[in-house]
């Protein structure tokens, strides 16, 4: 009993704060999306109108595209970068420091940097002009505010490759330096040692990191704000626009969008928790 009181005192404030704010926010959003608060005509009409709106569906598809492509590219490059950084080469320390420094840079700064680098009047366009490839800014391919969201994806890749790389390096450190040599002395080639020994043990960490990246790229606001096209716009922009619409009738729809995104997040949460929380039973895989 005493031990229980102690645990309650230690945990209570944090759990109450996070639980109150998170569950309060989600609960209110749910009630408002169902038009239960203020009580109008309760029901799923907000969801129906959201899911019937071509604009919202296009935004949903765009955000899926952004999150999926960013996550896949970042995961692949991070795997390569982690394998690179665990080996010795001149300048390795400097690169490792740069990778860590990137963590500290806010996404909005990265987005503006990418904008000034690859927009039609950006540094790359100027280089293309100097090389005689284009004569005017409009001839440079549109990489920002473009339908394929290339600038947004580039920003996420730039920010998240270091993030996943550091997760993988931390995991490699706990694995120790000898598993590779063990595999090699059992006859595995360099590639086989990676494919059959290192990669399977990195996959859970890689997937857990990728789930966080996907969630972030799906739900972040400021990167598409700087680099996104007007139509379709990324889902977070769309949700915020409905929310701040002068027509208050749009609000339930905004809350419906946020609940739909939360449902997607619940799936990601289940995946992430399965990968990082200690399991009680043992899995067979």
């Amino acid at each position: 009993m005493r031990e229980r009181t102690r645990l309650l005192l230690l945990l209570g404030p944090a759990v109450a704060l996070v639980g109150g704010l998170v569950l309060g926010a989600l609960g209110l959003a749910l009630l408002r999306s169902l038009r239960l608060l203020p009580l109008e005509e309760p029901g799923l009409s907000a969801y129906a109108s959201v899911l019937a709106s071509p604009g919202v569906l296009a935004s949903l598809a765009l955000s899926f595209w952004i999150a999926t492509v960013s996550t896949l590219i970042a995961a692949g490059l991070a795997l390569a970068a982690a394998m690179l950084l665990r080996q010795a080469f001149p300048g390795r320390r400097l690169v490792a420091v740069l990778v860590q420094l990137n963590l500290t840079i806010p996404h909005v700064v990265g987005a503006i940097g990418i904008l000034y680098l690859i927009s039609q009047s950006g540094s790359f366009a100027r280089l293309a002009h100097a090389a005689g490839l284009i004569a005017a800014p409009g001839e440079f391919p549109a990489l920002t505010h473009d339908p394929w969201a290339i600038g947004i994806i580039l920003t996420y890749v730039w920010k998240e490759v270091p993030f996943i790389t550091l997760i993988l390096l931390a995991k490699l450190q706990t694995l120790g330096p000898d598993l590779g040599p063990v595999a090699r002395s059992l006859g595995a080639t360099r590639w086989q040692a990676f494919r059959f020994v290192l990669l399977p043990q990195l996959l859970p960490a890689l997937a857990a990191g990728a789930a966080l990246v996907f969630a972030f790229a799906f739900g972040a606001y400021e990167v598409p704000l700087v680099l996104g096209a007007h139509a379709p716009e990324a889902l977070p922009l769309r949700a915020w626009r409905s929310f701040t619409d002068v027509d208050l009738a749009a609000r339930p729809e905004a809350f419906a969008i946020s609940i739909l995104i939360a449902a997607l997040g619940a799936g990601l949460l289940a995946l992430h928790a399965r990968l990082i929380l200690p399991r009680r039973g043992r899995d067979a895989g």
Binding site: L28, F218, G219, A239, W240, F243, G265, L269
Partner: peptide, 23 residues
């Protein structure tokens, strides 16, 4: 408790912001 703590990290940002504003 651990699951609750993971919610803000894993949930896409926009999912919580609107409800928080209302709260």
């Amino acid at each position: 408790v651990l699951l609750l703590l993971l919610v803000p990290a894993v949930l896409p940002g926009i999912a919580l912001v609107l409800g928080l504003h209302d709260l």
